[in-house]
Amino acid sequence: MSQPPFIQVNGLKKFYQARGTRGLFRKKKYVEAVGGVSFTVQRGEIFGIIGESGCGKSTLGRLLVSLEKPTEGDVLIDGVSVQQLIREDPKAYHRMVQMVFQNPFDTFLPTETIEQIMLRPLEIQRLGTSREEQRNRVLTMLEDGGLSPAEDFMGRYPHELSGGQLQRISILRAMVVQPLFLVVDEPVSMLDVSVRADIINMLIALSQKYGTSILFISHDIAVIRYAAQRTAVMYLGRIVEMGETDACIRDPKHPYTQALVSNCATIDIDTPVTKIRIEGEAPSPIQPGPGCYFANRCPHATDLCRQRYPEPQTLEDGRIVACHMCQKEES
């Protein structure tokens, strides 16, 4: 961990104006989709983001590839601000950062062959000196991704391929420009269990081979466990716990993580787990403060929790936890 962080996310925030509060004289209200998130990703590391629906994990992913403009905060790639990179050369920036979406069935134009689909990023980026070279690059990429013989796939149309194969194409298309940073948003949740393993293994292999940093967004904790070395747990737009994936699962510190992990369905029937019940729903992301966002559902909440949002705290094992109660235990 001695090398400087490769991707550095600093206090990233994204607020949307709440529905029904537009208009000149209306009091404006904001939805805190992402409310100040900071973390770092090393070169070639797979970093996981877990959380329930509505916790802002997808918005975070979109912010990181600049599909959304952050309200506040910045992302640094190798020490250079993304804002600056985009200003100087947007095309070069988009070669550095790529994204893979959840649903592989909707991501491709149905009238294009795999060859056309895979060549498009190279054409846009003007990579390779000749069509021959570009084609070869695509062929190697397909072989790398386990789609062999690659030549067979080149002439096929998206509807001729299975979901697993399409998701591979989706990942390979993003990887063909050899990005430094790849954001994958729920890449396996639409796929059958028996092909999920392939996609996870493929992402791990690609990140090792090309040294690409990957941000792996998922709601499935077991999947994250296999893919990511470190993981951040999000709740209502903020990171509540972050650390080594295995440590977060085996010994979660934040009460929300504890509830999340204990309620996660598992095939390990021999590991006894007592589910921690938490009441109610996540509060509205419109003005959720001032205290800890989890306080109204947390079994350990005190008055302090309801008054002040806990600052992230680094524990002995390098884990970062935002909880008043954890701090007390440490001191």
């Binding site: 028996s194 999920r196 996870i200 293994n201 077991a222 085996r250 598992t266 095939i267």
Partner: peptide, 15 residues
């Protein structure tokens, strides 16, 4: 092929 939450992290194999 199924990821386990607590068990040993063996390689996932697809069918």
């Amino acid at each position: 092929s199924f990821p386990s939450l607590y068990g040993p992290k063996t390689d996932l194999k697809s069918i």
